[in-house]
Design a protein around this nucleic acid. Sequence first.
DNA 1: ATAGGTGCAAACAGTTTGCATGTAT
DNA 2: ATACATGCAAACTGTTTGCACCTAT
Lengths: 131, 131
Amino acid sequence: MTRRTKQGEAIKNVLVNCPSPLSAVEILARAKQVVPDMGLATVYRHLNRWLREGKLTPVEFPGETCRFETTGKGHHHHFLCRDCGRVFDLPGCVAGLHSFVPAGFVPRQHELTIYGACPTCARQTENNHAN
Amino acid sequence: MTRRTKQGEAIKNVLVNCPSPLSAVEILARAKQVVPDMGLATVYRHLNRWLREGKLTPVEFPGETCRFETTGKGHHHHFLCRDCGRVFDLPGCVAGLHSFVPAGFVPRQHELTIYGACPTCARQTENNHAN
DNA sequence: ATAGGTGCAAACAGTTTGCATGTAT
DNA sequence: ATACATGCAAACTGTTTGCACCTAT
């Protein structure tokens, strides 16, 4: 039913080997190093298939294009550094989520994103202020 | 510097009077009831100005177009009902957020979105299962 | 041999921008 | 009077789709 192609393999490898979520064009750029004449449509077709199958999760930040990461990295959330733009995984989950949801609502999934300065950028800001 | 126009007033009224976040086209549809020949570009120009001024917050859900809500409703988060598509405000915040952020990271903002069934839809699902 | 995958280009949705005109100050 | 706001259409970005060709099975 589902055929094994060099394009699909290349895209999968990019996703599996990258620790942080990637956008479609970032995935294409990396996969092209293996299959140079790959098209963006092929990337999207694989991404959508894997999303449908639950093997991939979309990661979205306001004003930024959608990124994708493999599922099964264990439950985690994301930290977006406002200074350098990098995305970090924060393992685990916040306490007290259940008690936050009002009675009557039935939560099935959730997403938590934290914005601020990553350790590297925070240190630099500190140094700048010291001068 | 900033001029008072019927379009701007109409858009502002739509946003202020709506309890849940709205997309640009939803805002246009409602504002057109007051100023019928308004264009979508005008809506975006006002939205972007207010976003820049911090009077408006973007609310985004994966795969859905961006919505907007006025700031100053007090700290809250959002619940998206997967069944009816409606968005609900959840007042307050989750406990233990600070202890969740690893050492070194400096959090400045955060966003929490919960997906599931709203009270109305949850009740219906229950009833269906009973039949 | 054939169903399914691929590349390309065209189509689409959401948003932004250039420009001539309109209007609040 | 003039600077800013508006409406329209064109441009742009990210994503999807139609189609002829290709390829893993």
